[in-house]
Amino acid sequence: MKGVKSLSTNVRLALISLLICGLVFPIVMTGIGQVALPWQSNGSQVYYDGKSIGSELIAQNFTVPVFFHPRNDSASGVDPDITLKDAMSQVPRIHNATGISESVLNATLLKYRQYTLFFFGTPYVNVLEVNLYLVKTYPSIYSQYDQ
């Protein structure tokens, strides 16, 4: 009888734990997130012309020469950032493809520069941010390449 009681106790406690930790908690947090912080809760999506063009946290598949390209060897394969050095090495290609002067492109990169280790570490840029700026600033050049 003691064994049966202990089995029933453990099964009941397991089910209560499931209910609290495995259902109520994540669902309540989803509710709070959706109401209080809807933009982040739904993946930090960037909007262009009123339409979502994907998450600013996920690297996009930029392949044509007019855009800055992300790298695709990192652990996740969707690192949205490239080092400033990497970005600057792409400037001549974009200049050749678009005719935008190299100094303007470099200045754009510096405008969107961020740092690892706060202000100490490696400077880098978010590829989507920079490309979106170019698309908005030079619509005549980019209209044939964007969605």
């Binding site: 979502s52 996009q60 392949t63 855009f67 989507l128 390449y145 964007d146």
Partner: peptide
């Protein structure tokens, strides 16, 4: 989601 570059 269709992303910034056409057909991506």
């Amino acid at each position: 989601i269709p992303t910034l570059q056409k057909d991506a």
